[in-house]
């Protein structure tokens, strides 16, 4: 809507794309109701997106937009879900181990690894992984199982689906394991200064139980907040670099190409999709809060 209300820009011409014929622009203006008031324009646009789902991309010779997003969504979802599972478990393992062995070699080593994980650009790590698994060592026993780049649908064979995604998952997760591991360690170290951890230790609980049931349990609250934000944004298309490097035609890549071509209908659809997931993950995070933190339950 903001696009349409911006003075000095003709939305019809924008939608038609660069070098569009004058007749096309006129047709679009009539079709989208750009000669009508803004609320009507909004209603028409929403109808095209959600009800009739016939919003078409003029840049791409009349390709319908919604089915494209629907085709890209499972790819992005597979990528981000798998990576999320990895990074949740990975970062909890890193954070807990580092906090339990605070100030020892284990702690320092893990924190250096985490820092490396944070600092490696995803596209660089991805290309490196490709170089190693697709070309250099592809013929050795180590990586001969790695299929070619690209996405294989889950229902065509879960095992193939898994094999194509394992390396992208690790690549995407590396950054987040690093960030979350470091943040979690800091939270845990802080929790060990708290009275309730002292109480737990004074009760005679084992160090593992003090860590997992008391310190980690409390640190999960900020962890979930962070997770919700990052997960929503990634599903919404921020996994672009990983998608491009591994030839996965996900939503991130779709948005990226739409922007390159100034394909406004496509951008509209992907932005809608992204906001949908940001809202959904935030709602889920709020529900998880109620489960893990009794203090937010109303009484």
């Amino acid at each position: 809507m903001i696009f349409f209300a911006t003075p000095g820009s003709d939305p019809a011409a924008r939608i038609a794309g660069r070098n569009a014929a004058q007749e096309t622009v006129q047709a679009i203006r009539k079709d989208f109701g750009f000669d009508k008031p803004l609320p009507v324009q909004y209603a028409i646009m929403m109808k095209k997106l959600f009800v009739t789902r016939d919003l078409t991309s003029f840049v791409n010779r009349g390709l319908e937009v919604v089915p494209q997003v629907m085709r890209a969504a499972p790819i992005t979802l597979s990528l981000v879900f798998g990576a999320a599972v990895l990074w949740v478990f990975g970062s909890i393992a890193v954070g807990v181990l580092a906090a339990m062995y605070r100030d020892t070699v284990i702690d320092k080593g893990l924190m250096i690894l985490a820092l490396i994980g944070v600092s490696m650009p995803v596209f660089w790590l991805g290309e490196l992984m490709n170089l190693v698994s697709q070309s250099r060592f592809h013929d050795t026993w180590l990586f001969s199982w790695v299929p070619g780049l690209g996405y294989k649908p889950f229902f065509d064979g879960p095992w193939m689906w898994f094999k194509t995604l394992v390396i992208p998952w690790f690549t995407l997760a590396a950054l987040y394991i690093g960030i979350y591991g470091r943040v979690l360690r800091a939270n845990l170290v802080e929790a060990y200064q708290e009275d309730y951890v002292r109480t737990a230790r004074a009760k005679g609980l084992s160090p593992g139980r003090v860590m997992l049931r008391h310190a980690l349990r409390m640190s999960m609250i900020p962890f979930v907040t962070m997770f919700g934000l990052d997960f929503g944004v990634l599903v919404g298309g921020a996994a672009l670099l990983t998608e491009v490097v591994f030839g996965l035609n996900g939503v991130g890549r779709l948005t990226y190409q739409a922007m390159l071509n100034l394909d406004l209908p496509m951008i509209l659809a992907t932005v809608m999709y992204a906001s949908f997931f940001v809202v959904v993950t935030n709602a889920i995070v709020d529900i998880i809060y109620v489960v893990i933190d009794p203090r937010v339950r109303g009484h």
Binding site: D195, Y196, T199, H214, R217, M218, I292, D293, R295
Partner: peptide, 12 residues
């Protein structure tokens, strides 16, 4: 028995 009952118990 610790000093501050407000923080001595795990809140969750």
């Amino acid at each position: 028995i610790s000093q501050d009952p407000m923080t001595a118990l795990t809140p969750v």
